[in-house]
């Protein structure tokens, strides 16, 4: 069988883009190889670890088990898209630094995209709800506690409850 390609147009981090994509590609393959968005990590590649997480039309997905051709017409957000227009990092990224929620860093973009989906809901979640919403990500280094703190702190800050953010 000869190679099969398809033209895929979508919005990535706010920019309308279009490329011929191999139909066998996962969304991870497309984002990393065709668009050089290397925050999208190749981890387990079977939906277990969350290192490849991206937001598609407002919901968080494992890009490793998502066909690239399904991106047609969708709005995709990767970690790169969280940076401000001046290239500065976002509050949630800063919180990961401040709380020492990053060690080797391999899991970090995926965790931050899961966190971004939580923050986008613009409401306060209980500790258990935050843990449940972060349960699709694995980290082999930090032991999760600092990651949890970074997410909770940013959630409270965005809701204007800064004081309670001090855990």
């Amino acid at each position: 069988m000869s190679r099969q390609y398809k033209l895929v147009s979508c919005t990535i981090n706010g920019k309308q883009v279009e490329k011929m994509v191999d139909v066998r590609a996962s969304l991870t393959d497309m984002l990393r190889d065709d668009y050089r968005l290397t925050s999208v990590k190749r981890g387990c590649e079977v939906g277990e670890c969350g290192a490849c997480n991206v937001i598609i039309d407002g919901e968080c997905f494992n890009s490793c088990i998502y066909l690239a051709v399904w991106a047609q017409g969708k709005e995709i957000l990767t970690l790169e898209g969280l940076a401000g227009p001046d290239g500065g990092i976002s509050d949630i990224q800063q919180a990961f630094i401040d709380e020492a929620a990053v060690q080797c860093g391999f899991c970090t973009p995926g965790f931050i995209m899961s966190a971004a989906a939580i923050l986008e809901a613009k409401r306060e979640f209980t500790d258990d709800e935050i843990r449940k919403r972060m349960s699709g990500n694995l980290c082999r280094c930090t032991g999760y506690e600092n990651i949890f703190r970074a997410v909770k702190k940013t959630m409270l800050q965005r809701l204007g409850k800064e004081k309670e953010g001090i855990l």
Partner: peptide, 9 residues
């Protein structure tokens, strides 16, 4: 089922 991302797909 699974985790949040599995429940979205």
């Amino acid at each position: 089922v699974g985790g949040p991302q599995i429940r979205n797909i």
